[in-house]
C-alpha cells in the first residue's frame, strides 16, 4: 500500500511538532523516520495510526484519505517502544487479541496466531505469560500481535530501545528478511541511525518538525543535503572553505578541487576519508580512541578548529603534529 502524507501539520500550543511534512511511502518499502528526540517523528507516526488528528494536511492510504477513520478500523499494525503486551493474557492470546476483537472464531484465530508464532520462531512460547519473557521474545510477540490483524502498514515506534546491541542486530536482520518475505510496507521510527540504515530502504531525516532530506541510506550518507544530515548520520567534519578555480582554500591549507559553484562553501568530510600522509593539512593530535577495527583520532587544525579522522592503527601520539590528506573524490561541498 502506498502512503502519502500531504502538508501534514500538528501543533501543540505554540510549537509545531510536525510542520507541513509531505512524503510518499511506496508499497512494500521499509521507510525510516529518524531524527533527534522532539523532532516530531513519533507525532507523525501517531497521526498515521490515528491517535492524533492533524491540524492541517492529509494522510492518504492508496487513494483515500484516512484522517476521519478511527484507529480501530484503520488496519494499521503498531509496535510501541514500551512493547505494551497484555500481561493478563498468554502469548497466544496476545497475538489473537486483534482477530478476537474483529470477531474471528476461536478455532480460526488460535490457528492463525499459532502460524504467526511459527513464522516468528517462537511457537514454543504460546502458553507463556508475557512477564516471564526476555526482551527479545517480548519484542517478537508484540510484532506478532501487530501482524495478526494483517495490517496494511506496520508502524514501529522505536521498538528496539532497551535491547542489548547483539540482540538488536539479530532482530534487525530478521525483521528485514521477514518484511521482505511478507512484502510488508513498514514505517520505522528510530533515533538510532545505524538501525535505520540497516533496516530501511529509504529514510527521512527530520529536525524541528520538518524534513531535512529523504533518500536511501547511501544517498544520505554519501551526499547529505546539509550540515544537519551530515552530522546526524555518522560522524562528519564540517569545514568552512572558499572554492576557487581549481582549489578549495581552507585558509590554512589548500586542496585541489574543481568547483561547480564557487564561493564560500561548507566542506563535509567523513573521518574515513582523511588519512595521514603527505597532504597539505596539518593537525596536532589531541586524543585517540582505539575501537578495534579503527583508531578514531581527534586533532586540532591550525585555525583552532577540530578534525576527526580514522586510521587502522596508531600512527602518532597525542601532542604530535602530522600531515593529513583528504580523498577529494569523496568529500561533499555545499554552497
Amino acid at each position: 500500500m502506498n502512503i502519502q502524507l500531504e502538508e501534514l501539520t500538528k501543533r501543540y500550543g505554540e510549537t509545531e511538532a510536525v510542520d507541513s511534512v509531505s512524503l510518499t511511502i511506496h508499497e512494500g518499502e521499509t521507510f525510516g523516520l529518524i531524527g533527534p528526540s522532539g523532532c516530531g517523528k513519533s507525532t507523525m507516526l501517531r497521526m498515521i495510526a490515528g491517535f492524533e488528528t492533524p491540524d492541517h494536511g492529509d494522510v492518504i492510504f492508496d487513494d483515500s484519505s484516512v484522517v476521519d477513520i478511527p484507529p480501530q478500523v484503520r488496519d494499521v499494525g503498531l509496535v510501541f517502544q514500551s512493547i505494551a503486551l497484555f500481561n493478563n493474557m498468554s502469548v497466544i492470546e496476545n497475538v489473537a487479541f486483534g482477530p478476537r476483537m474483529r470477531g474471528v472464531e476461536t478455532e480460526q484465530r488460535r490457528g492463525d496466531a499459532q502460524d504467526i508464532l511459527e513464522l516468528l520462531d517462537i511457537s514454543e512460547l504460546a502458553d507463556r505469560d508475557p512477564q516471564n519473557l526476555s526482551g527479545g521474545q517480548k519484542q517478537r510477540v508484540a510484532l506478532g500481535r501487530a501482524l495478526a490483524i494483517e495490517p496494511r502498514v506496520l508502524l514501529l515506534d522505536e521498538p528496539m530501545t532497551g535491547l542489548d546491541a547483539t540482540l538488536k542486530r539479530r532482530l534487525q536482520t530478521e525483521m528485514v528478511a521477514l518484511f521482505d518475505e511478507l512484502d510488508m510496507t513498514a514505517i520505522h521510527v528510530t533515533h538510532d541511525q545505524e538501525e535505520a540504515m540497516v533496516m530501511c530502504d529509504r529514510i527521512a531525516v527530520l529536525n524541528d518538525g520538518q524534513i531535512e532530506q529523504v533518500g536511501t541510506p547511501t544517498e544520505l550518507y554519501e551526499s547529505p543535503a546539509n550540515e544537519f544530515v551530515a552530522d546526524f548520520l555518522g560522524t562528519s567534519n564540517i569545514l568552512d572553505a572558499t572554492a576557487r578555480n581549481g582549489i578549495l582554500d581552507f585558509g590554512f591549507a589548500e586542496v585541489p578541487f574543481e568547483c561547480a559553484e564557487c564561493g564560500d562553501v561548507a566542506v563535509i568530510v567523513r573521518p574515513e576519508h582523511i588519512s595521514p600522509g603527505s597532504g597539505s593539512l596539518r593537525a596536532k593530535i589531541t586524543n585517540q580512541f582505539y575501537l578495534g577495527e579503527k583508531v578514531r583520532t581527534f586533532g586540532l587544525l591550525p585555525d583552532g578548529g577540530k578534525i576527526i579522522f580514522d586510521v587502522d592503527r596508531f600512527v602518532a601520539q597525542p601532542g604530535d603534529e602530522i600531515s593529513l590528506s583528504m580523498d577529494t573524490d569523496r568529500i561533499r561541498v555545499i554552497g
Partner: peptide, 22 residues
C-alpha cells in the same frame, strides 16, 4: 501505561472492550 490502551484500540477494540479486557 497509556500505550496499552492505544494498542488495544489499534487492534480493533472499542472503548468498552478496552476497559473490560485491558
Amino acid at each position: 501505561n497509556p500505550e496499552l490502551e492505544e494498542t488495544a484500540y489499534n487492534l480493533g477494540a472499542n472503548r468498552l472492550q478496552t476497559f473490560r479486557y485491558v
